[in-house]
Amino acid sequence: APSIGRAQEPIKWRFQTYAGAALGEQVTKPIVDYINTAAQGELEIELYYADQIVPTGELFQALQRGTIDAVHSDDDSMASPTPMRVFGGYFPFATKHILDVPVLFEQYGLADIWRSEYEKVGVTWLSAAGQDPCNFNTKKEITSLADLDGLKLYTFPTAGRFLSQFGVVPVNIPYEDAEVAVQTGELDGMAWSGITEDYTVGWANVTDYFLTNNISGAWIGSIFVNQQRWADLPEHLKTLVMSAIKAADTYRNQWYWGGEAKLRATGDKLQLRSVPPEEWAEVENAAKAFWKEIAQESEIHAKVVSIFEEYNGVINQAGPPYNF
């Protein structure tokens, strides 16, 4: 029954995102702003950026414990203890475009797998969305596969594992330190994002080249909530949270889609470079072997890989623009 007289104490959540402040402004803050405005004080969310309360690698444990109530991250960066970990972030060549992600989740069944796997470890998975592709921005020019050899790159763990067969040395440091690390020589660049992010977070200021070939067409990232906190939330607020997430997905879709095109075409900080498609096919073939390797790991792994294969079969048959 609605309480009469005294206003209800607001529910307060601490929400930490994988993104630093500059990027978080675009990819996470819209969700929080939407909720804070629309909830009229019933639910108040405080947003924290990368590594602010806990290091990103410890996010998952913090979420289970309730140190943090909600998280925006990919499974890989937050060191998820589920089999989903290798797929979140950038799974090599699993997607081509930003819209592939919601399609895979909603139409091909990934959402159910994700939801049930996270339930097992005491965390509520709410939603996944696509983001930018995974390109390279580096200090040295890359025009052939041989140029990858010996490059120290800031990248996702799974992408790093995959790329190390081409001589890439993946380096894992806190997100906010990556820019400085290029200047201190700890890094030669990043294999982390599309060009929009490079300009937004300042990486374009410290690197010179952008490789148009990508190793994945869209980042897969999710919103997670502490299980108890979610159960405690009244139905109407649950609906509000979900619609805020969807609204922010729409904003993010156009922000990235438009940003990638515009900055490639008119940005003056990064020069574009490409590896010829025939040569890049070698990387794509390596990805197929990598998928097989991952599928061996468990039944769930095999299931997800088979979904990727199914979807890729469909878009290859459909032709452009789906498969490019």
Partner: peptide, 23 residues
């Protein structure tokens, strides 16, 4: 502030942060 919600872990989380600060 956050006793039942992970207040215990905050002190230790700093040690992981410290470890990652390579400089």
């Amino acid at each position: 502030l956050w006793g039942d919600r992970g207040g215990f872990d905050l002190g230790f989380a700093a040690s992981i942060k410290l470890m990652k600060w390579y400089p």
